[in-house]
Amino acid sequence: MRIALFVTCLNDALFPRVGIATVTVLERLGHTVTFPAGQSCCGQLHANTGYPGPARALEQSTEAAFAGHDVVVSPSGSCVAHLRAHTRLPVYELSELLVDVLAVTDVGARFPYRVTYHPTCHGLRMLRLGDRPLRLLGAVRDLELLGLPEPEQCCGFGGTFALKNAAVSGAMLADKCAHAVATGADYLAAADSSCLAHIGGGLARRPGAPRPVHYAEILAATGAGAVG
């Protein structure tokens, strides 16, 4: 299948390894990935911060960049939710594409670590990803999945909320990090690099805490090497 990748602005600039992992998984499964170069940002940041004009322009430029593509995939729950609400693009979050469209849960990955999974708010409540990411992780060889306490609680990122309401965001982050540490996992996985940048930045200050990782990176792994 020909699949167009919407890598997201954040992954493009800060976390290219998440885009690379997405390409790796899909190519390993025998699919052809394309990367339309006209893409940048879906407009979510502007829309949610209160700037409908620039948001609309970015939604339109994203729609134009992917015109004519039948299947678009993105490793970001919140960007997919935004594009689905504001464009007509046939866009899937990675776990939706793998489980629903390509009908695979075992992508041939091996990851010999203990992993806990945080279901990010957009994936949980807007896309209703349900257990798709967990089914994918459950099929990874040698991976031990550990339950996260109060998984459905928001991590406190919320885009510019993290700056505008820094104190509340920090308090929510502290609770999320404490829950992650309590699992004793090696890695905390999630479906959104933005939430992971926030949670990971908090975990980095806590000794013995799990390392943040996008679940696509786990799906791309085949050896014993650490990721993230």
């Binding site: 493009d12 600039a13 800060l14 390894r17 993290a162 920090g170 990971g200 200050r205």
Partner: peptide
């Protein structure tokens, strides 16, 4: 409240 990520050495 948290460490900040840095731009990658090579963009996607």
């Amino acid at each position: 409240h948290r460490d900040a990520p840095l731009p990658a050495e090579e963009s996607f």
